[in-house]
């Protein structure tokens, strides 16, 4: 029984920390969707670019990985704007199918470009003030400094993005466009510029998430798909276009992903001999896909959604 409680507590803490990063990953997707109803399949690849950006620039500049985050943000924003002007803008004229395939092509392009340049070996940050340090919080509960910092900084970045959208004039133009594109146009807001801004903001936030993640999550060219799916599930759960929803849903998804040890502990507790060596742990991301499906069918507007 004690083992179960311990597993639950660990899952809660680990889920909260992981979930805050997931929230930041999903933020960019939800901003872009809210403003222009486009789903970016290459979202996870943006994250990958952010991961590599931090990984490569830290030794290059000789600074700690944490300090390269602004640079990652810049890379992400640049990538976002480039993709918007180079591709997305042209896809908007076509049917939905063209948008889906266009961003899918972008995903293949970025993923394999990374494969060409970086190779397929997984890489991770080895040196930095956070790496290898940890805090012992309680009996059997150890928190890695990298995860703690990632969660805290994610929350910070999330707050920053929210402030930008909710408190600045540019951000208000963004909100206005997502509420009613035509009305915003009549008020003199340029849709083009707002769209580009959404992609810059979306790219920057997900790249920062990548920079935080790479401190404890190895990066390889194929890392993107999992995070794209996590972001889709998060955004669906929170409600497409909802920023508050992304935060809450991110944490929930984080906890769901970290929960399988709890189920395993429960199974052991009831003495189930269901499949020797089989652990629910290996299915932890399957739950993420299932959640997306169930949420969309049962409650398509998500927890806080207003678009449907």
């Amino acid at each position: 029984m004690e083992a179960l409680f311990l597993a639950m507590f660990k899952a809660l803490v680990a889920g909260l920390l992981m979930g805050l990063v997931f929230a930041l990953v999903a933020l960019g997707l939800t901003i872009i969707f809210g403003v222009m109803d486009v789903v970016n399949f290459a979202h996870g690849e943006f994250l990958m670019v952010g991961m590599y950006a931090t990984l490569l620039t830290a030794p290059l500049l000789g600074v700690d990985p944490v300090l390269t985050l602004p640079f990652s943000a810049l890379v992400g924003a640049g990538l976002g704007v480039l993709c918007y002007h180079g591709l997305i803008r042209h896809l908007l004229r076509g049917p939905t199918i063209a948008q889906l395939f266009g961003t899918f092509g972008l995903m293949l392009f970025l993923r394999n470009l990374a494969l060409m340049i970086m190779g397929s070996e997984p890489m991770i940050v080895h040196q930095g003030i956070l790496v290898g340090k940890s805090f012992v919080v309680g009996p059997g509960i150890v928190l890695g400094a990298t995860k703690l910092a990632a969660a805290a900084l994610s929350l910070g970045a999330f707050w920053g993005a929210w402030w930008l959208i909710d408190r600045t004039k540019t951000g208000k133009a963004l909100t206005a466009t997502s509420l009613d594109k035509e009305a915003a146009m009549y008020m003199g807001i340029s849709t083009e510029r707002v769209n580009a801004l959404a992609w810059a903001l979306g790219g920057a936030s997900v790249a920062v998430a990548g920079g935080l993640l790479v401190n404890f999550w190895p990066v390889d060219p194929n890392v993107g798909l999992l995070f794209t799916m996590i972001a889709f599930a998060t955004v669906a759960l929170g409600g497409f276009g909802s920023i508050k929803g992304a935060l809450v849903a991110g944490v929930l998804i984080g906890m769901i992903v970290q929960a399988p040890p709890v189920w395993d502990a429960m199974l052991r507790l009831v003495g189930s001999d269901a499949a020797e060596g089989f652990t629910i742990h290996s299915l932890k991301y399957t739950f993420v896909y299932l959640i997306y499906f169930l949420i969309m069918v049962v409650r398509p507007q998500g927890l806080f959604g207003w678009k449907q």
């Binding site: 293949l108 392009f109 394999n112 397929s120």
Partner: peptide, 17 residues
């Protein structure tokens, strides 16, 4: 390795656009 899929991705983007 990967160049074929880079070209592939580029063609898909082009067609879609």
């Amino acid at each position: 390795a990967g160049l074929d899929l880079v070209i592939y991705g580029a063609i898909i983007m082009l067609i879609a656009a």
